[in-house]
Structure formats: structure tokens, C-alpha cells
Amino acid sequence: MTKVLISGASVAGPALAYFLSDHCDVTVVERAPGPRDSGWAIDFRGGAIEVLAELGISDRIRDLDTRSRGTAVLDADGAKTGELPREVFSGELEVPKRDLTRLLHEITADRARYVFDDSITSIRDGHVEFERSPAADYDLVIGADGVYSKVRRLAFGPAGLLHLGLSGVGFSMPNHLGLDHSGLLWQHGGAFVYLFSGNDPDRLTVGLSFGTESPELDRRSRAEQERATRAAFAGHGWEIPRLLDAMAAADDFWFGSTCQVRIDSWSAGRVALVGDAGYCAAPTSGMGTSQALIGARTLARCLLETSDHEAALVAYERELRPYVAENQEIGRAHAQSLTATPA
């Protein structure tokens, strides 16, 4: 039986494990100490709805839908200037990311071997070394470990990350605005605020985004990230001071930059990439989760259709590249519209 190692237990990794596990011996390694319970709400669009059905979790996902009713657009003073329909931010279905991650782990826990609190340190023609576990040999190693993929760095080198000019923080706080399955989008200059309250009426999800020249802040300390955020929003009124105070107190603080991954090939020998690790389209595309699920299903199908893994990986990339290119163009266009200097 083919031995497959998947690095990353967020979305693409467990989905791939599900589709391969009836025919392969699958191990999933994840550097976090357990299934991840963080992240903003994520949405599903187009063919990803079919993948949820194939995973057998469609009904459970629909039960978790945030049931967003849309987003009000505000000016610098907080006055409403327009309304965006649900689909802009929430797609056809939207759930908290932690719920999807939990479900994917639940349906694969007895189909694949999970190794948490560990990470790959070396890959040589299927021979893999780890930080904690003994070295082992695998027929295939799949990087499903996100935009800053360690597998990509080890097997393909440091290139491939394209910064699109935005960074930002996410956290939650008490819902003092009383939002009810709805959102607010505030924008002034190069600073943006997105607020949303979904299935937990007492909590408000907060996103504060601003223009940056590189993703360097992603590697800095939380204190440095908070300082950069405060500097970007300095002098603004409305709810900004209160949001910044809540940021400092948040225990679910998250920081990330808007990037794409663009490399010439998604495979090298016995190593391949799936989801954000190989072809992140950026959060501004709205397609990250859908692309991860569709990518996992496509990769699994191609691998199971032939015993020649090299031919399978070529077929996977040939089939998926046009879809990824379209999503990446959407991600770039939306990022450019947000970072463009007003006339």
C-alpha cells in the first residue's frame, strides 16, 4: 500500500487524507498541539459545495452556517453609505474555520494517523526527518501546510511568495454594537475595518487591515504587530479607539498578510503541494477554502487513477492550473482595488 505523508491538518490536508485513506496508508503531521481552533469565518463557493457532499458533511456544515444577511458600508464617520450582499463576504455557505477543521479531523481520525506537535525538518527522495518523531520513508510527501509552507521551502526553495500590499489583525470582542448576523465595513484611506457577528450574538469578529510593503510583520512579535496596527489607525475616530483597546486584550489575536503563492511547478519528485502551500490565491480572492477542498479532491483522484505518481501529479497540475489562475487574478484585482490611492 502506498505510504503518504501529509504536512498540515487544517483544511486541504485532512480533506486529502479522507479521499486517499481507503487506498493508501496516510499519516498527517501537524506542528500545532492539536486540531486548530482559530481562524475567521470561511466560506464555500462553486464546486466546493460538491466536495462537502463527497466528504459527507454538507448537512452539518449547513447547520453551522453563520446566516449572514449582508454588510453595511460606512464612511470615515461611521455613517452608512451602502450595502453589500451576503455573497461578497460569505459565499454560498459560511462557517467558523474552527468548526470546519474540527469536522474534518473528526471524519478522518480513524482513517489516518495524526501526529501533532511535530514538524518536518528534511525531505530527501521520500526519506523524511522530523523534529520529534523517528525518520521514516514515504512514497509521497504532500505539503498542505499553508502559505508559509515548510514543505515548499524544503523542496522548492524560498521563492514563490507574492505580497499584495495588505496586512492586518483579527480577534474577537464583546458585541457592543449589537450586530445580528450582519457586518460593517469601514474604510478611510488605506485603512479598513470589517466587523461581523454570526452565530454567537455576544461576540464580535474584528478585522483591521492596512497597507504594507512586505509580509515582514508576519514574522515579528505580537507587540510589534500591535504597534504597526496602531500606527496605521492613529487619529481615526468612530469606533477605532475602542477596537484598538480590545485588540490589546484579545486572547485570540491573529496577524497575517495578504499574499499569493506562485511557483512554476507544484511537484518535485515525490513531493507535491496542495491548497495555499502550492497556490494561495490570497484572502482577497474569497476562494481559499474552496480552492483547498477542490485541490485536495483533484489531487486524490489523479493519484488514485494511476500507479505512476509522476503522471498523476502532471495531470493534477494540468487540470487545476486554469482554475487557480482565475482565482489568483481575482485576488490580485481585489487587493489592488483596496490599496489604490484615491484620485
Rank of each mutant, 00 (worst) to 15 (best):
K3D: 15
V4G: 03
A15C: 13
L16E: 07
V26I: 11
T27L: 10
V28E: 10
V29H: 01
E30K: 04
A32T: 06
G39I: 08
F44A: 04
V51D: 03
G56F: 02
D59E: 15
R62M: 13
R67Y: 08
A72D: 13
P85M: 06
R86W: 00
F89C: 04
L93D: 01
L103K: 03
I107Y: 02
I107W: 04
T108P: 01
D110S: 15
R113Q: 15
F116H: 08
D117K: 07
I123V: 15
V128C: 03
A135Q: 02
Y138R: 06
L140M: 12
A144G: 05
V151Y: 03
R153W: 07
F156L: 15
G157Y: 06
P158R: 08
G168E: 03
V169P: 00
S172H: 13
L177G: 07
G178M: 12
G178L: 12
L179D: 10
D180Y: 12
G183S: 11
H188G: 03
V193Q: 05
L195Y: 09
R203N: 05
L204V: 10
S214L: 02
P215I: 00
P215S: 13
R219K: 12
R219N: 12
A231R: 14
A231C: 00
F233K: 03
W238C: 07
L243G: 05
L243C: 09
L244G: 06
D245L: 04
D245C: 00
M247S: 09
A248L: 10
A248N: 06
A249E: 15
D252M: 01
F255S: 07
S257Q: 02
Q260L: 05
I263L: 14
S265Q: 13
S267C: 06
A268F: 05
G269Y: 07
G269N: 06
G269S: 08
Y279P: 00
A281L: 08
A281K: 02
A282L: 03
G286T: 10
S290T: 14
G295P: 06
L299D: 10
H309L: 11
V314L: 14
V324R: 00
Q328I: 09
G331M: 05
H334V: 09
H334T: 11
S337R: 14
L338R: 12
T339G: 02
A343F: 11
